[in-house]
């Protein structure tokens, strides 16, 4: 861990100024991922701006009938919040599928959006990684890539190749829910659609999100539609708990009179960001739940998927998980 200075502003303006005036500074909230990476010498901020004193921990209704999750509300407080549990149980389920009780007590909603990949090569500074050290290569491409991405990868140019996945469970649910991220920065406030918040590696695998330097996430807005009746989050991993997803699926359905009126399907563990295809989801609308074959939907969602050896199994696993998740959300299968 490198040497750094520390600041603890008490208002948002000062916090944003801190980053604007200190190059190499970073916000710290829960610290669960940042301190981990600093000890690994992957991250080396020269200044930490502790934002825990900012008044951003509330969870409250929005005027549009949705719910605003404060950026500093912890994952645990969010998952167990009565409004989240009753109106957005998918989110609650996804959060509780991740990490451990201790980490959920520390990790914040805002911080969760910035979780970095679990790629072994990203973490090990003695191996090449374009995300950590631009241009150094991708160790995973021809290496041990069991946990890596099968969709939206960058694998053509050795200097920008990246097959890392986004590790969050919460974000998969937020993607399905069409959440909106509220940020404040040097240029003022703005909102970012969740689908636009995380990005694919492309030619700049070192960038995980579309947030601009110095911007601070203040809240995550959930739209009114929360799929409280028909939903599920399936997480497949190497042990029963406290492990990152190999594949996860978040599904929210609206069903009226046995017919699907709205459908959301987001995948985790398969790409550099939570994976959605709205055009495929749209194919479900109008379908009868008891007569629909979900397999072609799964096929369509995985279209273009590519395995790299150790992770090729994820393609089939994801398809099966999608089918099961749709059946579960539609209550054709027990929720477990």
């Amino acid at each position: 861990m490198n040497s750094f200075s520390y600041a603890r502003p008490s208002d948002i303006g000062t916090a944003v100024d801190e980053l604007a005036t200190h190059e190499g500074a970073k916000f710290i909230a829960g610290g669960t991922n940042l301190l981990d990476l600093m000890k690994e010498n992957v991250e080396h901020p020269n200044r930490l701006v502790d934002i825990n004193r900012l008044a951003l921990s509330t969870i409250e209704d929005t005027e549009e009938g949705g719910l605003r999750l404060g950026a500093l509300a912890t994952n645990a407080d969010t998952a167990y919040h009565s409004a989240v549990q009753s109106r957005y149980p998918l989110l609650s389920q996804a959060i509780l599928a991740g990490a451990s009780a201790q980490l959920r007590n520390m990790a914040t909603n805002g911080g969760n959006l910035f979780q970095r990949t679990r790629c072994y090569y990203f973490y090990d500074t003695q191996t090449p990684c374009n995300k950590r050290e631009p241009g150094s290569g991708c160790g995973a491409l021809n290496g041990f890539n069991r946990i890596h991405a099968i969709l939206g990868t960058s694998d053509q140019n050795p200097e920008t190749a990246c097959i890392a996945t986004h590790p969050s469970d919460m974000c998969v649910a937020l993607a399905a829910l069409d959440a909106v991220v509220r940020v404040t920065g040097p240029m003022g406030e703005r909102t970012i659609r969740f689908a636009d918040f995380h990005r694919l590696p492309g030619h700049e695998p070192w960038l995980d999100t579309t947030i601009q330097p110095g911007e601070l996430v203040t809240a995550i807005d959930l739209p009114a539609k929360g799929f409280p009746e028909y939903f599920t989050y399936i997480k497949l991993r190497d042990r029963q708990s406290y492990a990152f997803a190999l594949v996860s699926v978040a599904v929210g359905l609206e069903i009226d009179n046995n017919r699907i009126t709205d459908a959301r399907i987001a995948l985790g563990g398969v790409a550099h960001k939570p994976w959605r295809k709205p055009e495929v989801e749209a194919r479900l609308v109008g379908q009868s739940i008891s007569e629909t074959d979900f397999a072609p939907i799964a096929e369509a969602l995985l279209e273009g998927a590519k395995g790299y050896g150790h992770n090729t199994f994820k393609i089939e696993l994801a398809k099966r998980a999608i089918v099961r998740a749709l059946q579960r959300a539609a209550k054709l299968e027990p929720q477990v």
Binding site: I28, L35, D50, A101
Partner: peptide, 12 residues
Amino acid sequence: KRINSCLTLAVM
């Protein structure tokens, strides 16, 4: 509340 003390700074 239970937390992992290894992932927080004393100053925080």
